[in-house]
């Protein structure tokens, strides 16, 4: 018999007036796994999390946590989950320790257990020195750490992290990554949402790509990157009249279709990264007599994944 997934969504639909925020989302996260929900703004990431955490009722479909339906028994679901939303949801007029105590009591845990667990979490999230200071003076990174600690006070079976590093400076972001990686190593089931491929790549063992309220791809970071060839080549040539010759020379080297800019001088395509790729490209273009201005091989971004999967970039989608 297959084991019950920790998180499950089946054909979940959610409408806000005219807008179809979720258009039949399917998702299954096994216990102990860390999944990344990747997509641009407005793709439906936060709406998915809100349905799973009982904040929104789906219009159709089913959502379950540990096999418990979020609509039929929201109370039982709430006892099993921890939620860290997009804002650091802390009471900034209380101290860090008081915040943990406050949430622990709302979970109806015994006072002594809350006290012990709060001390452990403060230690673990590097907040012990600031434990008795009012949160108002905390940095963004400290607030997020406290926020996650609050979500963990009742030892939830599933932790939801909605864009846990949005708005953090690069150093705090790295610190947050370490925190999440540690949670994963401890065996906590985590569903995190992010707009950054790099973040999903670093933290999640499985990535679910979501766009327009639908899951458009799912796989390990390696599998997803393989779909766009693992790296991205971009080339600039000097004269637009050489367009066709350059295209002919580049196509055999790449693992996917070569995209040409409207002015016929910039080319981009997925490619297998490795030693000798750049010299190889230059040589191939030189052989057909094309003057090269610039050759670059870089890691794919979310835009590149989206381009490969949907034919449009994530950022251009945001504006429309």
């Amino acid at each position: 018999m297959p084991t019950t997934p920790a998180v499950e969504m089946r054909g979940v639909v959610k409408r806000f007036g005219e807008t179809l925020a979720l258009d039949g989302v399917n998702l299954s996260v096994p216990t102990g796994a860390v999944y990344g929900l990747l997509g641009p703004n407005g793709a439906g990431k936060t709406t998915s999390v809100r349905v799973l955490t009982t904040l929104l009722t789906p219009d159709a479909g089913e959502a379950r946590i540990d096999g418990i339906d979020v609509v039929a028994d929201p109370h039982a679901v709430r006892r099993r989950i921890g939620l860290t939303g997009q804002y650091a949801a802390v009471e900034e007029r209380l101290t860090a320790r008081e915040n943990l105590d406050y949430v622990g009591r709302l979970f109806h845990l015994p006072r002594s257990q809350v006290r012990q667990r709060a001390s452990d979490l403060l230690e673990r999230f590097d907040l012990a020195d600031a434990a008795d200071r009012v949160v108002k003076g905390f940095s963004g990174g400290m607030r997020r750490r406290l926020d996650i600690a609050m979500s963990l006070i009742a030892e939830p079976s599933v932790l939801f992290l909605d864009e846990p590093t949005t708005g953090l400076d690069p150093r705090s972001r790295l610190g947050m990554w370490d925190v999440i990686a540690e949670l994963a190593a401890d065996g906590t089931t985590v569903l995190l949402t992010t707009q950054y491929l790099e973040e999903a790549d670093r933290l999640a063992e499985q990535i679910v790509v979501i766009d327009h309220g639908r899951v458009i791809a799912e796989g390990t970071p390696e599998q997803l990157k393989a779909r766009i060839g693992g790296a991205l080549l971009s080339v600039r040539i000097a004269r637009p009249e050489n367009r066709d010759r350059a295209l002919g020379a580049l196509t055999p080297l790449c693992t996917g279709p070569v995209d040409v800019s409207p002015d016929d001088v910039a080319f981009s395509a997925p490619i297998i990264a490795g030693d000798g790729v750049v010299p190889g490209v230059i040589r191939a273009l030189d052989d057909v007599g094309v003057d090269v201005l610039d050759v670059e091989v870089r890691k794919p971004s979310l835009d590149d994944v989206f381009l490969a999967l949907t034919g449009h970039t994530a950022s251009s989608e945001e504006e429309s």
């Binding site: 650091a88 949801a89 979970f107």
Partner: peptide, 13 residues
């Protein structure tokens, strides 16, 4: 505005 309502609504309270 601070997102605290989301947190509270996700608690078994």
């Amino acid at each position: 505005q601070k997102g605290l309502v989301d947190r509270l609504r996700s608690l078994p309270m």
